[in-house]
Amino acid sequence: MSNPRLVVDGVFKTYPSAEHHRPAVPVLAGIDFAAARGEFIVVTGPSGCGKTTLIDVIAGFLECDRGRVLVDGRAVTAPGRDRVVVFQTLALFEWMTARDNVAFALKAMGVGAVERRRIADSWLERVLLGGFGDRYPYELSGGMRQRLALARVLAAEPSCMLLDEPLAALDSQHRRMMQDELVKLWRDHDRTIVMVTHDLDEAVFLADRVVVLSERPSHVREIVPIDLPAAREERSRTSPRFRECVEHLWELLRA
């Protein structure tokens, strides 16, 4: 990879102890990986292995003790629009209409009101929420809220999207539908995506490569390339190769 979009380079993070007689908690012990432009990376690992901490460091919410994160060659020092995060809770702005949620990043950029409205509406159209611009998030169904969160991120035109288990709260039907939508959105918009998940089927269905972390303090156990055709479809879920990949990840996690 000659010109990676995102580089995570030897990242260490230890949480200082809350009370002084308790030991500090080392969480990340040297994480290395890189993501190419437009690559879909899934990060998985045992529970409590520090996946969310890793996302926080990449996003710039949390400073790492050692190592660095580079986006397009520039070191990350603070949160920024080039690495937008979607949380499991979605963290929609409940007090804003769907349109204002999507337009928020544009407002932060200083885009004028008329232009904001036009761009926001076009993103809403693209995630099939056209006509819902004046609704508040509480009026939308679970799947619509997911799509709204995605539209809000896409409108920020980030070079990387960081997804912290955004689908974990969904039932299995919704989840599969959203996985399909994610694949479509990703293919259409060529974003670099780093997504954390526990779900190995989801990992294989979505990823170009899966970064498997060890338990805490975690390092990269293996980076597994998923050599399925890039255009994933529903039927790829049942192919023997798909099952093999899932089994391989499972072996790695149990090791």
């Binding site: 996003a59 710039g60 919410f61 603070a78 949160p79 920024g80 629009r81 690495r83 937008v84 995060v85 949380f87 809770t89 963290a91 702005f93 409940e94 007090w95 804003m96 928020f104 990043a105 407002k107 932060a108 950029m109 809000r152 991120v153 920020a156 960081l162």
Partner: peptide, 25 residues
């Protein structure tokens, strides 16, 4: 926390985060 982090990550500065996210929330 996630609400504020989302705002920051969408590029909002301190002022916009306080006036449009923290106070309304």
């Amino acid at each position: 926390r996630e609400t504020i982090q989302t705002a920051r990550s969408l590029g909002a500065g301190q002022w916009l985060t306080v006036t449009h996210v923290v106070l309304p929330a």
